[in-house]
Simulated scan of single mutants.
Amino acid sequence: MTRLSEQEDFQVALCTAPDQETAERLAELMVSDQLAACVNIVPNITSVYRWNDASGRSAIEKDAEVLMIIKTHAELMAELGELLEKEHPYDVFELISCNIEQASSAYLEWLENSLRF
């Protein structure tokens, strides 16, 4: 099969969740909607970040989280963001992505066949 997409159109996206159950629920939604071909869930990460409290004061926070590594396509990032906007429990959730610069042609073909276009 000839791939419709260029390699650089495929993305690895990162998104954190508060716990394993939430990450699994979100991952299942992404894969069932074919917005992600695969989501790896990495438990037990620690996030350290600056956050403003209700009074507007900035503080350094540290929380246990779960990381989702999402394999998707650039054309699906907006829809993926909409799904997370609706389903993610955080008011401000992380969704960042990088182009896949190198991958086997068989893997790229599997990605393309697993995603909605």
Rank of each mutant, 00 (worst) to 15 (best):
34 Q>H: 10
100 I>H: 10
109 E>C: 00
42 V>H: 10
33 D>Y: 13
29 L>R: 02
9 D>V: 09
63 D>L: 13
52 N>L: 08
31 V>C: 11
109 E>L: 11
51 W>N: 07
97 S>V: 03
19 D>E: 11
98 C>H: 15
98 C>F: 15
15 C>E: 01
59 A>W: 15
59 A>Q: 14
75 E>A: 11
104 S>I: 15
104 S>C: 08
13 A>R: 08
26 L>Q: 05
17 A>V: 01
31 V>Y: 08
12 V>T: 02
97 S>W: 00
105 S>I: 09
7 Q>H: 10
65 E>F: 03
86 K>T: 04
93 F>D: 05
113 N>T: 12
87 E>R: 13
83 L>T: 07
90 Y>D: 13
11 Q>S: 07
33 D>F: 14
105 S>H: 15
61 E>H: 12
76 L>Y: 03
98 C>M: 14
90 Y>H: 05
23 A>Y: 03
73 H>L: 10
110 W>A: 03
106 A>I: 15
70 I>T: 06
26 L>S: 05
47 S>P: 14
14 L>P: 04
56 G>E: 11
57 R>L: 12
17 A>I: 00
64 A>L: 04
67 L>Q: 10
62 K>R: 14
9 D>A: 06
107 Y>D: 11
17 A>F: 00
43 P>S: 10
116 R>L: 15
37 A>V: 10
116 R>D: 01
74 A>I: 07
110 W>G: 03
11 Q>H: 03
75 E>R: 13
82 E>G: 12
109 E>P: 01
18 P>G: 05
89 P>M: 01
10 F>N: 05
48 V>Y: 07
86 K>P: 05
49 Y>D: 06
75 E>C: 13
22 T>S: 02
111 L>S: 12
72 T>E: 13
41 I>F: 02
84 L>N: 02
61 E>M: 11
25 R>V: 12
5 S>D: 08
32 S>I: 09
43 P>E: 14
40 N>L: 12
103 A>T: 04
30 M>I: 00
107 Y>C: 08
71 K>P: 02
8 E>N: 07
28 E>M: 14
53 D>Q: 02
10 F>W: 06
28 E>N: 11
